[in-house]
Write a protein that binds this DNA or RNA. Sequence first.
DNA 1: CATGAATGAGCCTTCATTCAT
DNA 2: TATGAATGAAGGCTCATTCAT
Lengths: 224, 224, 224, 224
Amino acid sequence: MSVPERYVISLRAGNRLRPVTASRTEQRKAELRREIVAASFDCFAEQGYHATGIADIATRLGIGHGTFYRYFDNKRDIVEHVIDDLIARILAALGEENAPDAVSTLEDYRLQSARIGEAVANLIGADPRVPRLLLLEAPGVDAELRERVLDFIESMTEVTAAYLAHGVELGYLRGDLDVVQSARAINGMILGAVIHGVRHHDEDSQATLARAIQRLMYDGIAAR
Amino acid sequence: MSVPERYVISLRAGNRLRPVTASRTEQRKAELRREIVAASFDCFAEQGYHATGIADIATRLGIGHGTFYRYFDNKRDIVEHVIDDLIARILAALGEENAPDAVSTLEDYRLQSARIGEAVANLIGADPRVPRLLLLEAPGVDAELRERVLDFIESMTEVTAAYLAHGVELGYLRGDLDVVQSARAINGMILGAVIHGVRHHDEDSQATLARAIQRLMYDGIAAR
Amino acid sequence: MSVPERYVISLRAGNRLRPVTASRTEQRKAELRREIVAASFDCFAEQGYHATGIADIATRLGIGHGTFYRYFDNKRDIVEHVIDDLIARILAALGEENAPDAVSTLEDYRLQSARIGEAVANLIGADPRVPRLLLLEAPGVDAELRERVLDFIESMTEVTAAYLAHGVELGYLRGDLDVVQSARAINGMILGAVIHGVRHHDEDSQATLARAIQRLMYDGIAAR
Amino acid sequence: MSVPERYVISLRAGNRLRPVTASRTEQRKAELRREIVAASFDCFAEQGYHATGIADIATRLGIGHGTFYRYFDNKRDIVEHVIDDLIARILAALGEENAPDAVSTLEDYRLQSARIGEAVANLIGADPRVPRLLLLEAPGVDAELRERVLDFIESMTEVTAAYLAHGVELGYLRGDLDVVQSARAINGMILGAVIHGVRHHDEDSQATLARAIQRLMYDGIAAR
DNA sequence: CATGAATGAGCCTTCATTCAT
DNA sequence: TATGAATGAAGGCTCATTCAT
C-alpha cells in the first residue's frame, strides 16, 4: 500500500531511520519525547484536548511541567505531534499490507481487502482511542487540525482509488467504475465501520460488519 | 421515514406544536431563544465551540451577554441545543421522504434512495456548516456530546436497516442480507459523502459520488 | 507656560472637559479608572514596575484582578497611562505659570524663573515619587517608554528655548545666546535638581539649589 | 580627579592591579568573567535588563548557561557588576583629566572644564549605550541599583564641588559661590547633555551644547 | 426583564536557578 | 570544571458565570 509522501516523512522523523549513533543523552531525549507524546495521547483520549492541561501531562509522567516545554513549543504543538503520530501508526499498520498492484485476480483482491479490513479492525481492537482521537477529537481542536484530518481521509481515498484503478485495468472490476468516487464510497464504509468500532469493540460485530462491507462491495444488495 | 422518539421530542420542543395560545411575551421569548440558537450556530461554525465566547454570541445578536443566561443555563447548554437543532433539521429534511414501507419494488427503492441521496446533498449544499459542526466540531466538545452524535449516527443506521429489512421481506433485496451491518455500511458511504461535501461543495462532485454510491449498493464493483 | 499639544490633549482626556452630563455608571467607571491609575502609581513607586503584579494593584483597591482588565488592556497599558498621567500632572503644575511672552524685563524674567523653580520644587516636595517614577523607573520599563520620557524632556527643552528666544528678542538676554542649547543646559540643571530632590526632600536644600541655579543662569560662576 | 573610595575598589576588582603571578587557570577565569560582563552589557543594552535572560548572555558567548553561575551568583549579581564596570570606565575616562588643584587661573580652568566636557562627549560618542544603561536602565532594575546610580551622580557632584572650591579659594571664581549647589547645577547640565547624547549622537550637537554650557557657566545668560 | 460590571478559577507559559553527569 | 536537562514558582491573562441595578 503506497502512502503519501508527507506521512512517510513524518513517519521517519518520528522514530525510525535515525542515525544509529545516537549519544546517550540524545536517546534519553528522544525517549522522553516519545513518552510525552504517549502521555499526551492518553490525556487527550481520556479527558479531551481542551480539558487536558499541560500539568496533567507532566504529572502523569512524573516530570515538572516546565520540562514539557523543553520538548514541545506549546499545547498546540503537542496535539499536532500526537495526531501525526496516530496517522503514522495507522499508515504503518496498513502499509504492511500489499501494494495495489500486487494482485491480479478478483479472488486475490477479495483476500487483500479482507486483510486490510482485518488490519483496520485490529487497529480499532488494539486501541479504540486511536480512531476516537483522530476522527472525533482532533477535528474539534481547531480549523487547521480539522483540515489535517480531512487531508488524511482524502489521502486514504487516493490509495483506495489506486487499488480500484488497478482492478479495472486488469478487468476483474467493472469497466465502467468511477474509481475515485467509488473509492470514496468504499472508504466511507470503512470510516463508518471505524466509527462504529469506537463504541462497539466486540470482535463479532467488527467481523460481521467487515463481511457485510465486502459482500456489498462485490455483489451489492440487490436480489439476483 | 420514522424517527427515534427523542428527536421527535426535541423537534417539538424546538419550535413546533406549541399551544397556539402563547402570550405575546412568550412568543418573543421563544423567538429570542431561536435567535440565540441561530447566532450560536453561526459562531460555533465560524470559530469553533471553544474559541467562541458567550460574549461573541450576545454581541452578534446585539443583546447583553447577561441576557443569554436568561435563556440558556450555560455554554454547555446552548451547544447541546444547537446540536439538537441540527439533528432535528436533518431529520426534518430526510423525514420528508417516504417511509420504508412505502415502496414495494426494487425500482421504487432505487428511486427512493436516490431521493434520499439528493436530500442529503441538498442539506450539504444548502449549508456545509451543518455537517461540519455536527460531525467534526460537536464530538470534540466533550464526551457526552460525542455520544450524542454517535447515537444519532446509530439511529440513522436503524432507519436504514428498517428500509433494508422491508426490502428483504418483499424479496427485492438479497435474502441473505445482514440488514443491520449492511445498513451500517451504507450509512458509512453516506457519512463519507457528507464529510467529503464539507470541503467540496461543488454539485458535480456530489452528484457523481451519489451515483457511485448507488451503483455500488445495487451492483457492487465486481465485473460480471 | 505653553505646553506641547499632545500633552494638552492627554490632559483633557484625562479628566477634564468631559461632557457634564455623564451618567451615573459612566462616572463610576471613570472614577475607578482613575483609582486604578492611582493604585498602580503607588505600587510601581513602592515596588517598581516589574515587581508589581496586576494582583497587587487589584488587591490594593479591593477589586478582583479580572476587573483590572475591564479598564486596561494589560500591564503595559497601565504603566503607560500612569506615566502619561504623571506628565500631565507636571505640565499642569508648570502650566499655571505664565507664558514665555508674559515678561519683558530681566527682572520679570528672574521672577518668573523663580516661580517655575518653586513650582518644580513643590512638585517634588509634594510627592518625590513622581520624578522618581518618571525619570528613574519608567525608562527601564522598555524602549518605548524610555523614548516617551526622553520625548517629554525634549519637549520641556523646547518650552525653555521659547522663553530664552523671547528674552533675546526683547534684549534682556545675551544676543549671542544659543537658545536651544542653552535651554538644554538650563533644563539639565533643573533635571539635576529634580533628581537630587528624589532623595533629598528637605526644603532648605531645594531652596539653596534653586538659588544657585538662578545665580548661575544669570551671572555665571566667574569672578568679575 | 579624585574618586570616591568604593569605586576605586571596584575598579581594581574589575580588572586591574591583580597580582602579577596569576596561574593559567586563574587568568582564564578572570578573562571569562570579563567576557561575561561584556556580553551582559551588550544584552542589557540591546534588550533591557528584564528582557534579557541568562540564556541570552550565555548563548552570546557560546557557553552553557550553567557556566554563568560558576562566575556570578545570579542575574542580580551580574547587572551590579556591569553597572560597576560602567562607572569604573567613566571614572577612568574622566580620571585622566587633571586634578582639581592642577589649575590656578580662570583661563586654565576654562580649558580644563573644556577637556572634561570633551571627555564626556567622547564617552558618549564612543558608546551611547553606556549612559543609556547607566542612567536609564539601571535605576529601573531595583531600588538598590537606583541608589547606586544616584550615589554615583552625587559623587560626581562632590568632585565638581572640589574643583569649584579650589577656584573660589584661588579667587578666579566668584567668592560668594555656593560651591556644593553650584556643583550640582553644573553636573545637572552635564547630565542633561549626556541624556541628550543618548539619542543625538552627532558631534556637532554635542559640541555646540558643550559650548553653550561653558558660556552659561562663566558668563550666565543675562545681557550685560 | 435586560444589562453589563465584577469576579476569580484556572491555565499557559517563562525563566532563574539547581544539580547530576 | 562545564554543561544543559530539569524544575516549579510566579504571573499575565481569559472568560464563563453571577448579581445588583
